[in-house]
Simulated assay, not measured.
Amino acid sequence: MATSENQYEIQKSEQEWKEALTPEQYRVLRKHGTERAGTSPLDKVYSEGTYFCAGCGQPLFSSDTKFNSGTGWPSFYQPLEDAVGTTVDRSLFMTRTEVHCDRCGGHLGHVFNDGPKPTGQRYCMNGVSLKFVPEESAS
């Protein structure tokens, strides 16, 4: 069973979420949707920086852990510490591990055990649920 919404630091009504997010962000982050593979420009971004939750701005992943999984979604082998939570997802006639933002509960994607070393995990994220902020270059 999914974690209760009232356990998250960021609390908004459905209407507030609809006003704060694009329709696609709302569908993925709040309704557990999935964007089509290959549609996110973030899949091919390999610049140094940080990936934040598009719903609440919490830092989620470092570019240091991003890799090309070939799946068509941005993939990472490890989240930042205390950034994400997981729940069991039994939709689509299978059991998967859903990944959500630990601050607002937004649906980010799923984690699988077929990733690279050192963790062996593949955090397969919806790009629409992320916001990438590149590192500023030293002047």
Rank of each mutant, 00 (worst) to 15 (best):
L108R: 05
E48K: 15
S91W: 10
Y46V: 05
T86P: 02
T119I: 07
E5I: 15
L108I: 05
Q11I: 09
G70Y: 06
K18E: 12
S62R: 04
G49D: 12
G85D: 07
T119E: 02
Y123K: 03
M1A: 14
D43F: 09
E48M: 12
A2V: 12
R96D: 02
H107N: 07
G57E: 02
K31E: 14
E35A: 07
P41A: 13
G33P: 00
G85Q: 07
C104T: 06
G49T: 08
P116M: 10
S4P: 00
F76R: 04
T39R: 11
G105V: 00
W17D: 02
G38M: 12
P118K: 07
V133S: 12
S91H: 10
G106A: 10
G72Y: 05
S40M: 09
C101A: 11
V84N: 00
G115D: 02
S91C: 08
V111P: 01
R122P: 00
L92Y: 14
R36G: 04
F112T: 05
Y51Q: 04
R90Q: 14
R30L: 01
Y8M: 08
Q25D: 06
S62Q: 11
L130F: 09
F76M: 13
F76S: 01
Q7P: 00
S62E: 11
P79M: 06
L29D: 00
